[in-house]
Design a protein around this nucleic acid. Structure first.
Length: 257
DNA sequence: AAATGGAGCAACCGCGTACGG
DNA sequence: TCCGTACGCGGTTGCTCCATT
């Protein structure tokens, strides 16, 4: 049986978008703005699922999207952010202006994870592997992926120390009960107002009160607290880098997906 | 020149969660 | 408080292009 589809699939287009569809979506959003994805296709005259429209807009049509040519700086930042946040692609993408979560994810899966392995680092945990993965030639892609999975399982068995990444907290709406100062961006006593991307609500960002990135129910740290501190310090380092580049506000904004 | 395999990436799918009634 | 709906995210699939055999 399975879950019911998100919308009626009868007569809906699937697969690659045509220039005409792109134009229709673009035109509609320019006039009416983003959102209301469910009803958007019908209003815009598109025979597409709302989800498909959203994805197309977010990953391709949105203005200011950078494509290709990931710089070494971005490359490095992705690796560091991934080591701290895990597969939180949207969070990572939020730190890289003009990059989409899908692009970062693809980049990681096709290039960086391999690079990490070649360096002898587990691409999931960022820990040193006992032996760097040897390159195997030949074999089909599916088999390669299976090998990766098997290897990752083996390594996980060897590594009993688990450090959980911070549990993500959704920030799409700040009107909810999440006290942002305490739970997400408790950064300092120098209060600064930061507007969300939609410019609807204002939040206060304060520095140096700790990094309340964990919510009350965060997953526990299983294993070395030292490791967690290490991760935490690196995150702070990243943050301080941003601060020195007047990036505090962009940092805060980047978390406001 | 044709067949095969790998890399890259756009798009789909299903799940979890926020939110409104 | 509960329930249904819409949205956002991460995992996965599958298509296209290119290099190699």
């Amino acid at each position: 049986m399975g879950r019911a589809p998100c919308c009626s699939k009868v007569g809906l287009h699937k697969g690659p978008w045509t220039p005409r569809e792109d134009a229709l979506l673009n035109k509609y959003i320019q006039v009416h703005g983003e959102g209301q994805w469910k009803s958007l296709p019908q209003k815009a005259g598109l025979l597409r699922c709302g989800k498909s429209c959203r994805l197309r807009w977010m990953n391709y049509l949105r203005p200011n999207i950078k494509r290709g040519n990931i710089t070494p700086e971005e490359d490095d930042l992705i690796i560091r952010m991934h080591s701290l946040l895990g597969n939180r692609w949207s969070l990572i993408a939020g730190r890289l202006q003009g990059r989409t979560d899908n692009e970062i994810k693809n980049y990681w899966n096709t290039y960086l994870s391999k690079k990490q392995r070649d360096r002898g680092t587990n691409s999931n945990t960022h820990k040193k592997l006992i032996e760097p993965t040897k390159k195997k030639s030949g074999g089909k892609k599916k088999n390669k992926l299976m090998n990766d999975k098997n290897q990752s399982t083996k390594v996980q068995e060897q590594e009993k120390t688990i450090v959980y990444v911070p549990k993500p907290i959704r920030l799409t709406s700040l009107s909810s009960s999440i006290p942002l100062n305490d739970s997400i961006l408790s950064l300092d006593s120098n209060a600064a107002s930061v507007s969300t991307s939609q410019g609807e609500k204002e939040i206060n960002v304060r520095e140096n009160e700790g990094f309340g990135f964990f919510d009350e129910n965060h997953d526990g740290v299983n294993g070395s607290d030292e490791k967690l501190v290490e991760l935490f310090e690196e995150y702070l380092e990243l943050f301080n880098m941003e601060k020195s580049q007047d990036g505090l506000y962009s940092f805060a904004e980047s978390l406001l997906v």
